[in-house]
Computed example of a mutant assay.
Amino acid sequence: MKIAITYERAKVLQALRYHFISRSEVKILLILVNVFALISAGLFAFKLIRPFPFLISSLLWFVLMLTFWFWLPRIIYSRTRTFKEDIDLSLRSEDILIETEKGYTTWGYQRFSYFMESPYFFHLYINDKSFFLIPKDACTGDADTVLVRQKLKEKMAFK
């Protein structure tokens, strides 16, 4: 099966957000910051603390949201050439063939640890921080999307 990939900026940014928010350490950090913010808001409401801890927790929450929702996805998108290239991807029986105008490479399925699915992409993870995105829009219709999903489930772990 051959797929012609062209990345759309808005969808890639959403996929990068999905990647960051799905990380366990980020989830724990967000939960801790939210608990701290709620506790400080409650203590501030009952006049048990001064405004400074409440403002610090609010600022910390705001900076975290800006970082994971806006800054990191945009930085990664702007620094990664792959998102600006046209790619032909072939899911073959033993490996994945990736072709660009600069050349080609093959990646064996065993190179990938697992794959994950988000609303617009299949995320093929090499390790916890490195991944390759296959847009669902590149598949021609729902039937091809189902075939890609089945092929990936056959060849690698699903998370």
Results as ranks from 00 to 15, higher is better:
7 Y>C: 03
8 E>W: 02
8 E>D: 01
10 A>N: 08
11 K>T: 05
12 V>L: 10
12 V>E: 10
13 L>H: 01
13 L>Q: 02
14 Q>M: 02
14 Q>G: 00
16 L>G: 04
17 R>M: 10
17 R>S: 11
21 I>H: 13
23 R>V: 00
25 E>I: 03
28 I>W: 14
29 L>Q: 12
30 L>S: 12
34 N>L: 15
35 V>A: 06
36 F>C: 02
40 S>E: 04
41 A>W: 11
44 F>G: 04
47 K>M: 03
47 K>D: 07
48 L>R: 08
49 I>N: 10
49 I>V: 13
52 F>S: 11
53 P>Y: 01
53 P>I: 00
54 F>C: 02
56 I>P: 02
61 W>H: 11
61 W>L: 11
62 F>N: 14
64 L>D: 03
64 L>R: 07
67 T>Q: 09
68 F>H: 09
71 W>D: 10
73 P>F: 02
74 R>G: 08
75 I>R: 12
75 I>H: 11
76 I>E: 13
76 I>W: 10
77 Y>V: 03
78 S>W: 05
79 R>K: 14
81 R>P: 11
83 F>D: 08
84 K>E: 15
85 E>K: 10
85 E>Y: 07
87 I>Y: 01
88 D>F: 03
88 D>N: 14
88 D>M: 11
90 S>T: 05
91 L>Q: 05
91 L>I: 00
91 L>C: 01
92 R>Q: 13
94 E>Y: 07
95 D>G: 09
96 I>Q: 05
101 E>V: 12
102 K>E: 15
102 K>C: 14
106 T>I: 06
107 W>M: 13
108 G>K: 15
108 G>Y: 11
108 G>L: 11
111 R>Y: 10
111 R>W: 07
112 F>I: 13
113 S>K: 13
114 Y>A: 13
115 F>A: 04
117 E>S: 05
117 E>N: 05
118 S>H: 02
122 F>Y: 06
123 H>S: 05
124 L>S: 00
126 I>Y: 15
127 N>F: 06
129 K>M: 10
135 P>W: 08
137 D>T: 12
137 D>N: 10
138 A>Q: 03
140 T>G: 09
140 T>Y: 07
144 D>N: 12
144 D>A: 14
146 V>T: 14
147 L>S: 06
148 V>S: 01
148 V>L: 02
150 Q>N: 15
150 Q>H: 10
151 K>P: 00
151 K>V: 06
152 L>Q: 05
153 K>R: 14
154 E>V: 07
156 M>E: 06
156 M>F: 06
157 A>R: 15
158 F>M: 13
158 F>C: 11
159 K>G: 13
159 K>I: 11
